[in-house]
Amino acid sequence: MSDGLKIVVLIKQVPDTSSAAGVNPDGTVDRARAKKMMNPFDKFALQKALESRRDHGGEIVAISMGPPPAIEVLNEALEYGADKGYLLSDRRLAASDTLATAYALFKTIEWIGGVDLVFTGLQTTDGDTAQTGPQIAERMGLAQVTYTETMKITGRTIRASRIIDGGLQHVELQMPALITVANSASKLEYKTFANVYKFKELARDPKALEGRVRAIDLDVIGANAARVGLVGSPTVVGKTWKLGEKGGTCKIFKGDAPAHEAQLLAGALAADGQGMEELLK
């Protein structure tokens, strides 16, 4: 095709749990106060999108669903080379579970239309389900490759390697397809100087950026509000509680003679009936 690929990449904004901001003393996260970041897995998805466009031309549309501040991750995606961004933001989306999220994102992709490739991260660090991608594929009737490590496109044919338990599976399929990208995929190079530079150049001329990142709502994409949010989600969080601390039961050996400590530890194991003889070669 002369005008290249139409590529969608799904990017979520998540709390940055490595930052102390918004982390309560008891370890819980206050989502409102927490520092936010691009879901780390989605950077690998973005990288695959950038690689596909580099080799085959076309357009990358980044989509995120979330509250208004999530527009930041779309700006970030543009800075790294995406062409356009849509933020699906609507109060009625609050408390959507993966089925509802997948429906809303599916409607957004359908609204964009004519998409050849959809990339998602393997999973998010907050929702952490790895379900959204396959659930979108199901709605779109698309073939999918999950846990993708490497991929190569020739014409309309995709060759991909996906991680399976204890190995790799090499597969071949035709576009359109949905690809979820593993975080073990190649080293991240998406932050190329050229991309960032181009963005900075663009950013000097507000007109050039105009309309590149746009907020949309359920009405724009023609989604059924009854299928999203609390009403459209088949699951709810019934209850949460703190992980029990087992603290204080550890037998600690400490001193200046590691040989002695190792001996004490082995002795304690044996005394506690935890001897490891039967496990030794």
Binding site: D97, T98, Q131, P134, Q135, D165, T235
Partner: peptide, 21 residues
């Protein structure tokens, strides 16, 4: 890698909830 590939498709087909992991 198998269940996380397959289960979401089945759940979306039946439009039911699926809790991961």
């Amino acid at each position: 890698t198998l269940g996380r590939d397959l289960a979401p498709r089945i759940a979306a087909h039946y439009e039911v909830g699926l809790t991961a992991d």
